[in-house]
Write a protein that binds this DNA or RNA. Sequence first.
RNA 1: CGGAGUCCCCUUGCCGGA
Length: 413
Amino acid sequence: LSTTTSTVMVSQALAFFEKIIEMGLHPDVTTYTTLINGLIRAGHIKPALQVFSHMGDAACEADVIFYTSLLNGLMKAKEVNRALDVLTQMEKNGCTPNTITYTIVISGLLKANEIKKALNILTQMEARGCSLDAIACNSLIDGLLKAKEVDKAFAVLTQMEKRGCSPDTITFNSLIDGLLKLNKVKNALTVFLCMDKMRCTPNVITYNSLIGGLVKRKEIGKALAILLQMERNGCTPNTSTYNTLIDGSMKVKDVNKALAIFVQMEKRGCTPNSITFNSLVDGLLKLNEVQKALTILLLMDKRGYTPNTNTYNSLIDALMKVKKVNKAIAILGQMEKRGCTPDTITYNSLIDGLLKANEVNKAIALLTYMEKRGCIPDHITYTSAALGLIQANEVGKAVILMTQMEKRGVLPD
RNA sequence: CGGAGUCCCCUUGCCGGA
């Protein structure tokens, strides 16, 4: 489990674990901890949390590391309150939280936007003489920036330097990415320049953050300049780097640039993944390059990538945008037949397109149908449906829909 | 050294707005 995220391996590990129990052996805390962490790493958060009760049944006592791992899982599942309960419970059971425990709790709280609670725990941590190590500082800086607490993040940075703990590449990456996401591009670039002065080497993540930030602002030229710089500095771009640039080029309607980047990535021996192909297909369809999109779909197939929900969503949306309702519905059937589950976005595209094609009744029918299939309408579904209804002179129905939306706790953006 | 924590991962798909 500690070396894999593969579903097959995880189920094998679980099967083996059951065998151990069937054999009448009693796994100890360490085994349970390995299990819980393996499951978390593989993204199976729910089963990971079940390990806790399993362990209780087996009368095996949890220790600090186990509780810390459990808290990690709870935070990843955004079960903030349960996590805080566990934090209390562990102390009752004689397990004193350490720096790692507090780091997990605090950064989890920050990611859940529970800033006050996070700062409370931080105070508690310090009051107990539990000091911040480098990782704790990095987590704090990252979490505070993601919670838009720029000043507090920089305060931690100052603190850490004062204590002779110098910021590393991860610290800078958090700062750069956080600032970019807050649209503080200039500050991000300043921080980037600081790295050099502090003899800190940028890595792929640094460059990917920068490129991503620039691309979001449609500054493709600058993003490409960063690509050149990263290559000059001996940092090899990865698939994400190229994917970001391909998508960005498409978003500024530069098909040729997008394709050139695709060619370049292959020449450099960087393997495209399904995101690469989806970005190309989606971009080409949006720019009416249908033939080229089909070519990419064929290439994708030749490389052994099967279309996924995103691929189908791009196709369906493109078809609906040119009002090819029947074709789109045919694709919907095809995707289901191939084991690809339509999601809210699939239905949103269809509903929006149907309304724009004056197929009001079909749109409403689909709205009911999607729920039957377990797809929850979101604010986009409602916005698009209400707008379509208004345009079809069905203002009354639109109002009813918006009321329904609020009742369900779906908030308009 | 049997087990725990930090950075890009919204890098791809849907409405509206700018």
